[in-house]
Each structure stands twice: as C-alpha cells, then as structure tokens.
Amino acid sequence: MATAAPSAPQGGNSHDLRTIATIWVVLSIVGDLAFWFLAGPHIPPGRMSDQARGAQFDFNVLFVIALPVVILVWTYLGFAVIRWRASRPNADEAPVIVPPRTALRIQTSWIAITSVVVIGLFGFGTYELIAPAGAGGGEGPTPIWKPNTKTILPIQVIGQQWMWTYRYPSFGGFETTQLMVPKNTEIAFHVTSLDVVHDFWAYQLGVKADANPNEDDVAYVKPEQLGRFTVRCDELCGLWHGAMYSYGHVVAPTAFYHWATTTEQKLAANTKTLPPFAWTYTPGANGASGSLYPSNVDPYSKSSLYGSSTVKVKQYGASAAQS
C-alpha cells in the first residue's frame, strides 16, 4: 500500500483545517441565529393551530440542524476550489496523502456522527408526531394517537371531482360546501372520497390527509387563531385538480354553534335526500371510478356468482341523483 507520508507543506493540515472550521463555526452561528429569530416565526404553515405550530417548530429545528451541515460542505468545497486548485502558486507536486490511521479515524467518526444525528432526528420526529396527536396528518380509520380529550368535534370531509363538501354528524349530518371550524376545539376531520384519491390540505391549519374512496382517514387539529384558511386538493385527481380549492374559516365556538344549528334547519329537507351519514360511501357501480360492467349486469345482484347479497351498500351517487 501507499507509504504513509504525513508531509505537511504550506503550514500543514492543521492550518487549513482551522481556517475551514473557523469559517464554518462563524457562518453557522450567524446563519442559525438569523434564521431562528428572523425567519423562524414566519415559516409556514404559521401558528393557526396547535398542529401548525408544531410543524413550524419542527421545520425550524430541522433547519437549524441542517444549515451547519450545508455550510460545512459548502465551506469545504469553496475552500478547496480556491485554496487547492492546481493553478495556484506553489502548487505542490508531491501529493499529500492522509495517513491510513487518520483516514480510518475520520471515517469512523464520520459514520458515528451521522448515525447519532440520524437517530436523534428519528427520536425527535417520532416525539413530535405522537405528542400533538398525529401532527395533523392522516391517521387512517383507527388512529392510535388521539387528542387527550373527550370532546372532539367530528367533521366529515368528502372529496369528489372536483370539489370538497363537508358533513357535520353532530348536527344531523347536513352536507355543505362551507367549512366552518370552532376555535380552541379539538376537531377530527374524517376525510373520504367518492371517486378517486384526493388529498385534503387545510394549509394554515397544518392538516393533510388523503381522501380515499371507501376509506375513512382521520386527522386531528385544534385551531388556535380566528381567520380564513385555504383548502387545496394536494393529490392529482384529474382534469380540474388545479382548480379544486376553497376556503374555510375558524370562528368563535358560539358563532360556530349558531351557524351549525341554523344551517342544519335550513338544509333539513335536503339532508333527508342524502344517504344516511356514514364514515365511507360506496359510489355507484357505474360511478366515477369507471364502469367495470356491461350495462346489463348488476354487480350487486343476488346471483350466487356475483357479489354478496348480504352486503349493504350505500349507493351514494344513485340516491343523490334522485334529489
């Protein structure tokens, strides 16, 4: 193997290392402090809800960890490009070889440091996921990380091409295109779809959950500020995906109660024509997900070959069309 030649021309290894380290430390501290105090409070999704605040905090923590890594590599690269270019004066012909033992030490410590950072990030991320009840993400039909309270307001979010509707099971299950949520209340969004996969993204609330047909995807949120938030579809759902957005409002609990009860009465006749409230709805067999059958075949017929007669299928499209 190579003869270990720890030659140290031009001031030696330590000199260059010290320069890099100094630049790195200074830039990292300045950068981190500047980010944390100047940009940090404004990082999306803001602080409209408990979950949004958590996401912002997480982002900022990750940024503060990531920035020194980036600066380290960039400083090193920049230093190398300037200091170790072949065209510099007195470019040393004799190659500087890192002695094998030093190289080994560098490699092991590199592996150790990255491993520690990664395990730390994992622990931090897991804590931040579990502590705020799923951090606003979709948790499937049976969430295991729930808010620590009994009073949770369920709101059903129904994605369909290409709009969102909402049902409020606590108020007779009326369906509307308006999204109103009360402040300081734990809310469970039950996200489902009538056709293809959508994704319910209440941006400022820090909520995101896929809307899957025949699936109930639950996401918890606790709004903490009054105001308007954007709802966008975040999963490509076809032609008008780009236009599938609307707005929701965080209102005071009393205002919400007033709105909900009056809307319930106003829509009472309409609600009767809807299918009974359920966590999921099966679209009609010839619905949006493609007509798989010739029109003369009923996939839910009582034929022993075809489907199961015991299955109660709520035909959403069929009954809604009658109204």
Binding site: L305, G307, V311, V313
Partner: peptide
C-alpha cells in the same frame, strides 16, 4: 376485504 368483496360465497 373492501366492500366485503374479497371472496363472497367463497367462490
């Protein structure tokens, strides 16, 4: 077992 249609009547 979506819509209980994995294998109706054990076809």
């Amino acid at each position: 077992n979506q819509a209980q249609l994995w294998r109706p009547h054990h076809v």
